[in-house]
Simulated scan of single mutants.
Amino acid sequence: MRPLTIALALTVLLASGAHAQQTAPAATPAAQPTAAPAAAAPAKGDPARGRELVFTCKGCHGVTGYKNAYPNYHVPRIAGQSEQYLVNALTGYREGSRKHPTMQAQAQSLSEKDIADIAAYLATLK
């Protein structure tokens, strides 16, 4: 139950002002064609910020040889993992394409920037 409490605290923290207000886009006249939006480049992560965000990750992934009691599975080592792999995995959990209830709950509170920062930091570890 503790990881969910931490995840809830992180969600409250992020929702309390970490995100800028969004404004409605200006209306475009119907007579003018609109340009197709440019594909956004993947955000480059900030390892220093990522280091601050991984405190909940260490609870399972930071313990050598850790296994959950039920269901019984090995918790993978994520330190030093490929940055792109970590981005893909966390995004998959957040979007529901990767299935694991605890990881899905953790990833729900993460923005794309959070994911990029976490991946950038974990990729620097040995």
Rank of each mutant, 00 (worst) to 15 (best):
residue 55 F to R: 11
residue 88 N to M: 08
residue 3 P to T: 12
residue 45 G to I: 01
residue 60 C to A: 10
residue 49 R to V: 00
residue 122 L to P: 00
residue 115 I to R: 14
residue 49 R to Q: 11
residue 44 K to D: 11
residue 77 R to M: 06
residue 43 A to T: 12
residue 41 A to T: 12
residue 27 A to H: 00
residue 39 A to N: 06
residue 29 P to K: 09
residue 120 A to L: 09
residue 116 A to F: 09
residue 65 G to L: 01
residue 46 D to T: 05
residue 39 A to S: 06
residue 35 A to N: 08
residue 37 P to Q: 08
residue 1 M to S: 15
residue 44 K to R: 13
residue 21 Q to L: 03
residue 48 A to L: 07
residue 85 Y to K: 03
residue 101 P to D: 07
residue 88 N to D: 15
residue 75 V to E: 02
residue 77 R to S: 06
residue 109 S to Y: 05
residue 122 L to Y: 00
residue 109 S to F: 04
residue 27 A to K: 07
residue 80 G to L: 00
residue 25 P to W: 06
residue 99 K to F: 03
residue 27 A to Q: 08
residue 23 T to V: 13
residue 23 T to Y: 02
residue 16 S to L: 03
residue 81 Q to T: 07
residue 116 A to V: 11
residue 25 P to K: 12
residue 41 A to S: 13
residue 2 R to Y: 15
residue 47 P to Q: 10
residue 50 G to C: 05
residue 44 K to V: 13
residue 20 A to P: 09
residue 55 F to C: 12
residue 97 S to F: 10
residue 44 K to N: 14
residue 38 A to E: 02
residue 79 A to C: 02
residue 96 G to H: 08
residue 60 C to G: 13
residue 41 A to I: 01
residue 42 P to L: 14
residue 84 Q to M: 05
residue 114 D to R: 01
residue 92 G to A: 13
residue 72 N to Y: 10
residue 79 A to K: 08
residue 61 H to Y: 05
residue 103 M to V: 04
residue 89 A to G: 05
residue 93 Y to D: 11
residue 110 L to C: 02
residue 98 R to N: 07
residue 60 C to I: 03
residue 119 A to F: 08
residue 72 N to I: 01
residue 93 Y to S: 06
residue 12 V to N: 12
residue 107 A to H: 03
residue 83 E to S: 09
residue 109 S to E: 12
residue 62 G to M: 02
residue 49 R to C: 00
residue 109 S to K: 03
residue 81 Q to M: 09
residue 13 L to S: 15
residue 28 T to A: 14
residue 26 A to M: 14
residue 40 A to V: 04
residue 37 P to T: 07
residue 14 L to R: 12
residue 95 E to P: 04
residue 104 Q to M: 10
residue 78 I to E: 04
